[in-house]
């Protein structure tokens, strides 16, 4: 593992250079202070002033809507009833400025899309194409509780490179070979001196200390699932809920999708669209029966999945990286930290 020093004067030139080998993706602001990860047009740079983008970068590998294949039912066509995967580019993508917790979230989502038995080719191919050039969080937001979910502002476990903004220059901790390839493509080659490395370590400590928001969940695992399920507090937690899909859509670890066929005349396509356990349609059966037919059930399901079932199934902690997006985006301020506290007590 090596650590490089990148002068901010050289940053843009390096980024541009890496474009010959990589499609660049990064955080950008849209109108209304809404931000998300998007492909960066020529000359466009990732906006490092955004700490937590409104939308998580999960869409880089898991777009909100994706065409899986197209087909025609036109018997006059030679392609009749043949399913065709549209041309997709899986050439290398560098995701510049992804925050450490979001990169960890990618690994959590991977557990769903990339299993020993089944692999979702669309997700896996997109993920494999990505090099994650993370940006350490030096100034955490109030809703960031990532240190207690097992990630933290400088966590490198999901990253290929970790950038740290040290004023006039970035320190780049190269984590993987994949990351090293991007560094070479951008021609960054100045090794950091011992003093800078020291700065990196002290900044790491400093940033961790700045995160004041925490959650505790150790007891949740010990509790009986049914006891948690039957708790009275679900009533008050779910009362204000609108049952919109905001929390699930902004969440970097929510992976649910729905498959839809769209037809126009004799041509059709099969789509994979984000879905949400907050929607009644998520669980409705063709018989009309809906096993999760109340708001309370749906709210409970989301938190039980995040904080209980995930740990029970994988034994890898909770399915939450502490980014705080659902807390800040929820129209009625349902706060996962408070829910966690109640479940843990």
């Amino acid at each position: 593992m090596r650590i490089l020093q990148i002068d901010k004067k050289d940053w843009s030139a390096g980024l541009e250079k890496s474009r010959k080998d990589y499609t660049l993706i990064g955080p950008v602001k849209e109108g209304n202070n809404v931000s998300k990860f998007k492909e960066l047009a020529a000359g466009e740079e990732p906006d490092f002033s955004i700490t937590t983008t409104t939308m998580s970068p999960k869409s880089v590998v898991f777009p909100q809507s994706e065409v899986m294949f197209t087909f025609t039912t036109d018997s006059a066509s030679a392609d009749c009833n043949i399913m065709k995967v549209p041309e997709k580019s899986y050439s290398p993508r560098a995701v510049i400025g992804i925050r450490p917790f979001d990169a960890v979230a990618m690994k959590i989502v991977k557990m769903n899309f990339d299993t020993p038995d089944y692999q979702d080719p669309y997700w896996c191919d997109a993920y494999a194409a990505c090099t994650f050039i993370g940006l350490a969080i030096t100034d955490p937001e109030a809703c960031d509780f990532s240190t207690s979910t097992g990630t933290g502002p400088f966590d490198t476990s999901g990253l290929d490179v970790l950038l740290v903004d040290a004023g006039d220059y970035y320190l780049a901790e190269v984590v993987t070979d994949k990351g090293d390839s991007w560094i070479q493509s951008a021609s960054f080659d100045q090794e950091a001196d011992a003093e800078s490395v020291e700065i990196l370590h002290s900044m790491r400590k400093e940033a961790k200390k700045k995160i004041e928001s925490t959650v505790e969940f150790a007891n949740i695992d010990k509790k009986e699932t049914l006891d948690l399920y039957n708790e009275k507090y679900w009533d008050s937690i779910s009362f204000p809920c609108l049952n919109c899909g905001t929390c699930t859509y902004v969440c970097p670890t929510c992976w649910c999708f729905d498959i839809q066929d769209e037809m126009a005349h004799k041509n059709g396509r099969r789509m994979k669209n984000w879905d949400s356990c907050m929607f009644p349609n998520f669980t409705i059966h063709t018989t009309g029966h809906n096993p999760r037919n109340t708001k309370l059930m749906r709210v409970r399901q989301r938190f039980m999945h995040k904080l209980k079932y995930h740990q029970s199934k994988y034994n890898m902690g909770i399915m939450c990286v502490g980014c705080g997006r659902c807390v800040t985006s929820c129209p009625v301020n349902i706060d996962i930290r408070e829910v966690c506290k109640q479940m843990n007590s």
Binding site: E30, L242, C244, G245, T246, Y249, P331
Partner: peptide
């Protein structure tokens, strides 16, 4: 509507 994510919060509120 270009940034709409179809979470339907508007409808649900």
């Amino acid at each position: 509507i270009s940034t709409c994510i179809r979470c339907y919060a508007c409808r649900d509120a």
